[in-house]
Each structure stands twice: as structure tokens, then as C-alpha cells.
Design a protein around this nucleic acid. Structure first.
Lengths: 204, 204, 204, 204
DNA sequence: GATGAATGAGAATTCATTCAT
DNA sequence: AATGAATGAATTCTCATTCAT
């Protein structure tokens, strides 16, 4: 950190970028700090000036940095979506997820690291629970209850509804951005089909 | 392998069981062969009598062994489902997935290893593509086309339909068996909701 | 440790010998495990099969091993001295210290390590306090009180007497065995002078 | 050094003070220059503006600096003692050591460093031999010979007498200032006992 | 004068793998 | 078949030292 600006040094950024690339390619445990240093174009010792341990480097990627510095705009965008009054559940879905997906696309590598390391690092789990469980989930649940009361969607337990909404979209993202390389138009069609599928699946 | 019988030795089985437990807990790269030997109650060197390298041990779990020794019954069960003529798409879905889920449940650890190591080992990817892409997917696709022609489900691209069917079910399995510990009854209800959701989402 | 015999392996002994030589020459902190391995004629990794950390290697030299395996005979010899009834304080002193000194001489290197590392390792301090404070000192004090009551030595606080006895002898050992290389005869004369000095210094 | 005045800069003094504190606490080899810089409230690099290497910093503490800047008054005090004509050996001893001990007490940390590093650094040994062997020892020996000729103390080899005088006093200092925390009165009594012990031990 | 980022050699430690028994 | 001692390359991390600012 630069003392004056409390911002990230150029070197620090290089290290983080290199670490993201390598962690996401090989997995945290199979990545070595020497590979990261090489990719960052710095000496290995330099990494440890900024991150006391390899683990701290991992947590700086999936932890405070990502979730508080890189995500807040994302979150505020998301909150805006929830403030607006949408005419229909379908419109809401489209609005809520189209920018979410762009976000994931832009940060594929970080998302991949988070998903991959989640099972092995309680610290990451806590970060994610903190973020999703306490910040995003309540917003989503409120909205769902609203649509259930207006009779637009079926009266299942909220958690179930959330799951039924989220999983097809996650499946869409994985198949589109991680597994196959499709044309943009193709993706658009797939996205539409997925939205339609959810809406029909949840209508009363 | 025992040369005479071409079967698995007791020691070999101990090693594989220990490896499954440890790989699934810590991930392949973060597991050490000495931990495995310890858990198996064998000497460090013994592992290497049966598996030339640590990687070969991994591949024996997610590769031939699992997919040819442990899965064949599973596959034949599955094939039976596809032979039968079900009255409705809904009945088919229920039949096809209820035993699939039992399978996953019984082999949580192996499934976890496969999912976790998939991105890092081309060999595993090939195994899975071989199995799913060439054995299971064609079966599923045939059946889907059948239901599309009978007008029971919507006329989207087959791959899309497969995705829309599979992802909610995968989401169900993950949330039920990996994330939360629910009562059996609860699980049953969730499973039903998921089936209903898919059927409604795909009806024309 | 050899499981059967609970004894020290040949390799383990080589490591300990090499470590004693190098620790005593350069001091613990300035010694590297690679130097020790080299001197022991073993691979560096081998050290860590027997001693989980460098510190554990140090403690195995100055700790249980030395003080329970190597010293007990020494201690029992010492205790014998205290059981015997000596005619005079002077005879007692001579008997008590002549074999003590032989012991130090034989284990110069280990003694050097203990003295040098004492200030930096609480664990070593505890070992020494345990040994001297609880086993040897009480014996010595009893004997001193005995000679004070018989009027043979002056009635100072026991701790003070112990100090006045021990320090000239320690000084003798240091100057004789660590600082200067003298002839054996010379040493014998110096030892005699030291004993006489203590006896006269403590007579009433 | 300040070129003009050939005196020690404020920063330099801070570094030396910090180094004394840390070297004496952890030992030279186990101390890091960054800890010293931190304790001195200076940047890591600043140390190396004044001392080309870590070793040079050590030698500046136990070498010229201490022995020429901090000790000269001490030495001249000491020399004064030797100029004076004391009535008895006992008075001489008391006079010679009472201020010596005050000196050690005031510079516990430096003394501790010297004693601890003596075995590992020939340079320090040379400094000490230079100082004691060539400056102090001759003075002491002359005085001892004087008291031997006057028949006040026993006719042992001078080196032996020096050892018999010095070791109880060193033992007194160690036990009093390094091992145990006693009351000032207690210390005074112990000092007296030690002097008496030496005088009696050396009387013909 | 002072800084502190950067370095790279070297430290302790781990671990898959080999091999004599 | 099984062992487990031994290996040495690789890994994470430390630290004295340099140098541009």
C-alpha cells in the first residue's frame, strides 16, 4: 500500500495480477510463488514484502480487496436494480442478471479461484457468506416475496425459489463462459431461453 | 492389480479409500502421499508398488476404476431407465434422476474430487467427456428429442434443454448434499419442487 | 528411534554428532541444516525425518537425550559421592568435582552449546533448572549444611556458599579446557590450588 | 561519524542503542537489521549508511566505540586505583572491583553481547585480548606481585591468582545482575562475602 | 542525509519417489 | 509383498544489502 494514497502499488498490482492468472490456471495449492514472481516480472522476495505469506496473497485476491474494493460498484449497481419497480418478474430477472453476468465474465479468473478454493479455506467461506448471505440474499428474498404476494410466482419456500432461479443461471454462465466458446448471438439466445425457462417454471 | 484375478488387492483398496478421503478433504495438490499411507495403515513405499506416481493414484480414482468398476452397475441401471417407456416426461425425469442422486449421495467424496480436479487435469476431462459425452449424453438426447416430437416439451436446441434439465438438479444436489444438512423429508419436497419446476419450465 | 530397541539409529547419531560439532562451533542460530547434513554425510531431508525442526534437533542435544540418556550415569556417580561419608570438607570437594570435571571435559561441545544457548531458549533453561535446581542443588545444599553444622565451613547463606564453591571451579574449567591448552600436570596443580583456595576461603 | 566533529550522529546513536538492545536480547545471529531499524525508528537502508555490514555494526558496539569511547573513563578510573597505595590487599580488592561492578551493571547489555559473541568472532576476541591482556592484566599482575612480595597473599603463579580473584567476582556479577533480582542490601552483603572469601582464600 | 522498494542468495522444511532388505 | 530409510529437488519464506529518489 502506498502510504499517502492508501492505494495499491504498481508492483503489488503486478503480483496480484500474476497470482490471479496462475492460481486460476493451476489452483492455489499447485501454484508456486516463484512462478508468480516470474510472471509478475519481479523477484520472489518482493512478493513477501507485500504479502507475508502465500495464503495472505490468496486472501487478498478473494478477500477484502476483491469484495470491498472491486465489488462495491457492482453491489451498488445491483441495489439500484432492486430499488426500481419492474412491471413483471421477467423484466426484473433480466435486469438483475444481465449485469451480474457481465461482471462474472469480466472477472472469470477471480470467480474461478473463489469457486475452486471455497471448499478448502474457511476464511474464504466466511467472506462469501458475509457478502452473499448478509448483503445480497436479503435483497433478493424481499423481492421474491413481493412477487409471490402479487401472485406472479409460485408460493414455494423463498430459499427454494432462490435456488431455482440461481442454478439455471449459474449453469448458463458455466457452460457459456467456462466450458464452451460460443458466438455472442448464441449466448444471447441461450440467456433468453434460460430466463423464459425460469419464468415459466415459477409461474403459478 | 492381482495378476491372476485381475482384481484389486486388499492393500490397493485401502490405499484408494484413504486417497479418496484425503483428496476430497484437502484437494489433490495439497494432499501428501505420506498422509494417505498413514490413513491406509501402510508404509509410504507401499503406495508406489501399486501406483507409480501420485497422479496415477488420482487417475485410478476418477478414471478406469471409478468409471469402469464402480459405475458400470450405475450405467446399466441408467440404461434401463432409457429403455422403459414412460407415460410422461415428468415420470421419466423422476425415474432418471432419483437413482442418479442416490448414486451421488453414496459417492460424495469421489464426485467432489472429480469436480474439483476437473479444471486441472486434462486426463480427467477426457475421461468425463468419454463417459458423459459419448455414453450418457446420446441416450439423454434421444429421449429428449422423443419428448419434443411428442410435443410434450418445448422445441429448443437439445443441448440447451439438457442444460436446463441438469443445472437445477445439480443445484439441488449441491445445496442438499454438500452445503446444508436437511431432513430426509425436506429433501424429498425439494426434489419434487425441482422436478415440477423443470417440467413447467419446459412445457410448450 | 529404532522401534524395537527404542535406541538411536546410526543416521540419527551421525546427525546429532554433526549438529553438536557445528552448533558448538558457530552457535545455533548461525548454523544451517545444510552444513549439518553435509558434515553428517547425509541428505538435508534426512535430518527432518528424525527431527521435525532445527529447534527440535537442538533440544534433542541439550534436552531429554543428553540429560536423561547421557547424564544419568553421571548423576548416579554424583549421588554416590554424596552418600559416602567424607572425613573433611576438602576430601568431599575433591571427590565431588574431580569426576564432574572429567565429565565436562568429555562433553565440552555439548556443555558449550548449553551455556551459549541458555539465554535464548526458555526450554533449555527449564531443562537445566529441572536438572540442577531440583536434582543436584538439593543434594549439594544438604551436604553444605552438614559441614556448616560440624563447624568446618563458615555460616553464610547456603546459596552464597554454593556460588563461592562453584564459581572458582567453573573458572578453572573454562580457563583450562576452553581457553588455554595446558599440560595435564599443570591442570592438576591448578585444580589443587583451586580446591585449597575454596577450602581456606570458607573456613571459619 | 560526522566528518567535521568526528562525533556520532543522532541517527547513528539510535542505531547503536537499538542494536545493543536487540543483539543482547536475541543474540547477534538471530537479530535482523530490519528489527533494529524498526526499534531505532529509522528506515532499513539508513543502517547501511553508517555501517557497511551487520557485522560492522556488531564490531562498532564491542569494538572501538565501546572500548575507546565508552570505556576510557572507566580505564582511567581503574588506573587511578592502581596508582593509589592501599594499606591492605582487602582494601585494594574492594576499591578495584566496586566501581568495576557498577560499570558492568550500567552496561549489562553490552557486556552480555561481548560474552555471548566472544566465541564466534575472532575480531572481538582480539579486541578483548588487546584491552585486557595488554592494558589491564599487566596492571593487575604488577599489583598482585606486590602483595605477594609483601607476604600478604600466597605465592601461586600470577595467572592462577588472577583467576582465583576474578572468577568469584564474575560469579557474583552473573548471579546478581543476570540471574536473580535481589535487593540492593542483599547485593552489598553478597559482595562483602565474596571479598572476604577471596582474601581468606589467598592468605598464606 | 534519509528512505524504502527491490533484490537474490540462502534458510528451513516438505514431499514424491527409489531401493535395499 | 511390504517396508521405511534415504534422497534431493522444489517450496515457502527471510534477510542483508543496494540504489534510485
Amino acid at each position: 500500500m502506498n502510504k499517502e494514497t492508501n492505494q495499491i502499488t504498481e508492483s503489488q498490482q503486478k503480483i496480484i495480477d500474476a497470482a490471479i492468472a496462475i492460481f486460476s490456471e493451476k489452483g492455489y495449492a499447485a501454484s508456486s510463488t516463484s512462478q508468480i514472481a516470474k510472471k509478475a516480472g519481479l523477484a520472489e522476495g518482493t512478493i513477501f514484502r507485500y504479502f507475508r505469506t502465500k495464503k495472505e496473497l490468496l486472501l487478498s485476491i478473494v478477500g477484502p480487496y476483491t469484495l470491498k474494493v472491486f465489488l462495491p460498484k457492482a453491489i451498488s449497481d445491483f441495489e439500484k436494480v432492486f430499488m426500481d419497480d419492474y412491471d413483471s418478474f421477467e423484466d426484473f430477472l433480466r435486469a438483475a442478471f444481465s449485469n451480474r453476468i457481465a461482471l462474472v465474465k469480466k472477472n472469470q479468473a477471480v470467480v474461478k479461484i473463489i469457486v475452486q478454493e471455497l471448499p478448502f479455506h474457511p476464511e474464504i467461506r466466511e467472506q462469501i457468506i458475509e457478502l452473499f448471505g448478509k448483503k445480497i440474499l436479503p435483497l433478493v428474498e424481499t423481492k421474491i416475496v413481493h412477487f409471490q404476494q402479487s401472485g406472479e410466482i409460485i408460493a414455494l419456500p423463498v430459499k427454494t425459489v432462490v435456488r431455482l432461479i440461481v442454478t439455471p443461471l449459474v449453469g448458463y454462465v458455466i457452460s457459456t463462459y467456462f466450458l464452451f466458446q460460443n458466438t455472442e448471438q448464441n449466448n444471447q439466445e441461450e440467456f433468453e431461453s434460460t430466463i423464459q425457462f425460469i419464468v415459466k417454471g415459477l409461474c403459478p
